[in-house]
Computed example of a mutant assay.
Amino acid sequence: MTIVPLIFTSGLASGINAYAVVLLLGLLGRFAGAESVPPALERTDVLVAAALLFLLEAVADKIPYVDSVWDLVHTVIRPIAGATVGVLMASHDPGSLGEVAAGAVGGTTALVTHLVKASLRMAVNTSPEPASNIAVSLLEDLSVGGLVTLAIFHPWPAASIAAALLAAGLLLVWLAVSRIRAFRARRRERRAARAQAHV
Rank of each mutant, 00 (worst) to 15 (best):
L150Y: 00
V124D: 12
L172T: 01
P5L: 15
N17A: 01
H198Y: 11
G82A: 12
N17L: 00
P155R: 04
A102K: 05
A185M: 03
E140A: 03
P128D: 07
G29W: 03
A168F: 15
I80C: 10
L23T: 04
L52H: 03
G86N: 12
G98C: 09
A158V: 07
I134C: 06
A135R: 06
A192N: 12
D141P: 00
A131M: 10
A151R: 05
I7S: 04
M122F: 12
T9D: 09
A159V: 03
A83Y: 11
N133Y: 00
A34P: 01
S127N: 11
R194C: 09
T108M: 14
G106C: 11
A197N: 10
G15N: 00
L25T: 03
S137M: 08
P38I: 06
A193W: 02
A163N: 11
T108K: 09
A49W: 01
A135W: 04
H92Y: 13
I3S: 15
H154P: 00
L55G: 09
L6T: 12
N17F: 02
L97A: 12
V76W: 04
W156G: 08
L52K: 06
R121D: 07
T75M: 13
V112E: 05
G103M: 02
M122W: 13
S10H: 11
A164F: 15
A167R: 09
Y19P: 02
I180H: 11
T108D: 02
V48Y: 10
D61H: 06
A195I: 06
A131L: 14
I3T: 15
R43N: 02
G103H: 05
L56D: 08
V144S: 01
L55K: 02
L111T: 02
S96G: 13
A58F: 06
A167S: 15
I161E: 15
S14A: 15
A162H: 07
A51V: 09
S91Q: 10
F8L: 15
F31L: 03
V124T: 12
P155A: 13
E129I: 12
S132K: 10
A131H: 14
V4W: 03
P5Q: 14
S178A: 13
P94Y: 13
L171V: 14
S68H: 04
R191S: 06
V66R: 03
L120Q: 04
S119F: 06
V48N: 13
P94I: 14
S178L: 11
T149D: 02
A118Y: 06
E57L: 00
S91D: 11
V112D: 04
R78M: 04
V148C: 04
M89S: 05
D71C: 05
V69S: 10
F31Y: 09
A101H: 04
A162T: 05
R187Q: 10
V136S: 00
A193Y: 05
V177Q: 12
R190N: 11
A167D: 12
R186E: 11
P79G: 04
R188M: 09
G95K: 00
L97T: 06
V59T: 11
